[in-house]
Amino acid sequence: MVPTPTEQDQPKKAQTAPELLARCLDEIRSGEASWAECQAQPEVKAAGLGPLLDIAAQMERFPSLAPGPACLAHIRERLAERKRRRPVLRWAWALLAVLVALLTLGGTAWAASESLPGQPLYPFKRWGERVRLSWMRDAEARSTFLMELAERRLDEARRVCSTPQCPDWLLADLEQQTEAAAAEIERVSESRRPLLLARLVELTGRQQAVLEEVLERAPEAARAGLQRALERSRQGHERAFKALEKHRPTPPAREGNPPGLERQEAPTPHHSPGKPESPGRKASP
């Protein structure tokens, strides 16, 4: 049977440089060894820890610094003052940030409002429209804004679709926003609906006029999309006009004579012989 080696017989694992440095510092602080004895150890020399031990020895000569009572009181006072001012400064910085954002976004939004499809600021313009629409909850406000958006798409189509660069999605957005406005009008109260329907009839009529004008000078690549948009606009115009006719008040019927009765002419006054003529009335010739 082979005897197992004891822990003392097993070779010790070599310590790393940080472990050697920590062991030396512990021995020096506990009084087990001096600085010179630690530096003379073979493993310390082999690890090149002599310069680090010299630096540690010099740092040990400096007295430990601790703040006095007056310094601590001053620090507490400054911290309390800063804590009192922090909410005011926080609100001030927040208001300043909002102001800068409004000025920046306002200028960018104004510049983006005139942008066209394909230009750098156009995505920002469409994003602002979607955000504004998402904040609206009233059906009348939404329908009014959607008709305004359809007006913008119509103007963009007029300016862009005369060239080969006429995107199909622009005409699709024109149709979608017009139909969305019509759907929102159906949610409006009966008393306010005719006014919005009249505006929708006017919008779809103007769409047909503009699209027909653009179609005449559009290149061949854009004519198919414009023709589809024109046909959809005509259909929307007919639907809006029929809905408006249903909401127009019916004029009251004229009251006629009851059946079987004819209008009777008033008797013509005449002078009977032998009777004096009524004062103020002339005799018939």
Rank of each mutant, 00 (worst) to 15 (best):
T268G: 12
A46G: 03
R254A: 15
C38F: 01
T163K: 08
K12Q: 08
G280K: 05
H237K: 11
A183R: 07
E186I: 10
C161Q: 04
S272T: 10
M59I: 11
L25T: 10
A266Y: 05
L89E: 11
H271N: 10
G106C: 13
P51L: 03
E7D: 08
R254D: 07
S64W: 00
G225F: 03
R23L: 12
W110Y: 11
L203F: 02
F62S: 11
L49A: 00
R263Y: 08
S162Q: 07
E186G: 14
C166Y: 03
I28D: 02
R82P: 03
L105P: 02
E43F: 00
G205L: 05
L21V: 08
E60H: 06
I75D: 06
M136R: 03
E245L: 10
L79E: 14
L95M: 10
A33M: 11
Q177T: 15
E231G: 09
G236P: 07
A111L: 12
S233F: 05
L171G: 10
R137N: 06
A73L: 09
P258S: 10
P87A: 13
L79N: 07
V201S: 02
A221T: 15
P249M: 07
T178W: 01
E19Y: 00
K275V: 13
L105T: 14
L171A: 12
E212Y: 00
T16K: 00
L197V: 09
S191L: 11
E114F: 09
I185V: 14
A150M: 09
R137M: 04
R85W: 07
W127T: 14
Q165Y: 08
A181Y: 01
T4R: 01
G280D: 04
C38E: 04
K13E: 13
R90S: 12
E216A: 15
Q10W: 03
R76V: 12
P267I: 15
A283V: 13
K282M: 12
A266F: 09
M147C: 06
P63Q: 09
F241G: 12
L195F: 04
A33R: 06
M1P: 04
P3L: 06
E277L: 15
Q235I: 14
A14V: 08
P5H: 02
C71Y: 03
T144Y: 03
A224Y: 00
V98G: 06
A92M: 05
W110R: 13
H247A: 15
G106F: 04
P167D: 08
R82E: 11
T268S: 09
S34A: 07
M147R: 13
T204H: 04
G256M: 13
W127P: 02
P194Q: 07
P279N: 05
G256P: 12
A73H: 02
Q58C: 04
W35M: 06
S30N: 10
R193A: 15
A46Q: 03
P259N: 09
A70I: 11
H74L: 08
A33P: 02
